[in-house]
């Protein structure tokens, strides 16, 4: 596998992660940031970089289901843990409720913040299926969007919550099956 640094010296460590359900591993220097590991080593480029100061959330991933800034984690630090990125949101070609929400409510413009926003939204709905506007705004306050003014992002997350609530009321067997594998 192509690694961030080809000069694998004595410092290199073996990092193995479960990424979107699949085991992935590589030998990298300890200084390699998780975001670079994901983007460069795993070639999953949906996770973005927008700043150097842990301020923007463009790099958000879920670590064991919890949203974190992958630019402020070392790859070695999370070795052994389970990571979800935007590429893991959809079940095959079918969009997840969060993706559908963003599409329907025009929750994205340039799309650069979108992966992070959707992951935060996804994690939020896991423990708060019916959040208020205030709760949504608070939850996404570690993620900057320069384009949308957030109004439609809030609506998108509410839209996703509504889809999920519907699905709970009338569970579709196919949807459950599709969610399982990839």
């Amino acid at each position: 596998m192509n690694s961030v640094s080809p000069n694998l010296d004595a410092l290199a460590r073996h990092v193995s992660l479960k990424v979107n359900g699949a085991e992935r591993s590589a030998d990298v220097e300890p200084r390699v940031l998780l975001v670079d590991f994901i983007r460069t080593n795993l070639r999953l480029t949906g996770t973005h970089i927008g700043c150097d100061t842990s301020s923007c959330g463009a790099c958000t991933v879920l670590v064991d289901g919890t949203p974190m800034k992958s630019c402020t984690l070392l790859a070695v630090q999370v070795s052994g843990r389970s990571i979800s990125t935007v590429e893991g949101l959809a079940a095959g070609a079918a969009m997840s409720p969060m993706q559908t929400g963003f599409h329907e409510e025009h929750g994205l413009q340039c799309g650069f913040c979108t992966p992070g926003m959707m992951l935060v939204g996804t994690a939020l709905l896991e423990h708060n299926p019916n959040p208020t506007e205030e709760q949504i705004r608070w939850a996404i306050s570690g993620n900057i969007c320069r384009c949308t003014g957030y109004m439609n992002i809030v609506k998108a997350i509410q839209h996703a919550a509504a889809i999920k609530a519907e699905a709970v009321k009338a569970p579709k067997p196919e949807a459950v099956a599709a969610g399982g594998g990839q």
């Binding site: 842990s54 919890t66 949203p67 974190m68 800034k69 402020t72 984690l73 939850a139 996404i140 570690g142």
Partner: peptide, 9 residues
């Protein structure tokens, strides 16, 4: 403190 994502870690 900080923001929700940083508070998670």
């Amino acid at each position: 403190i900080a923001d929700p994502l940083i508070r998670n870690q």
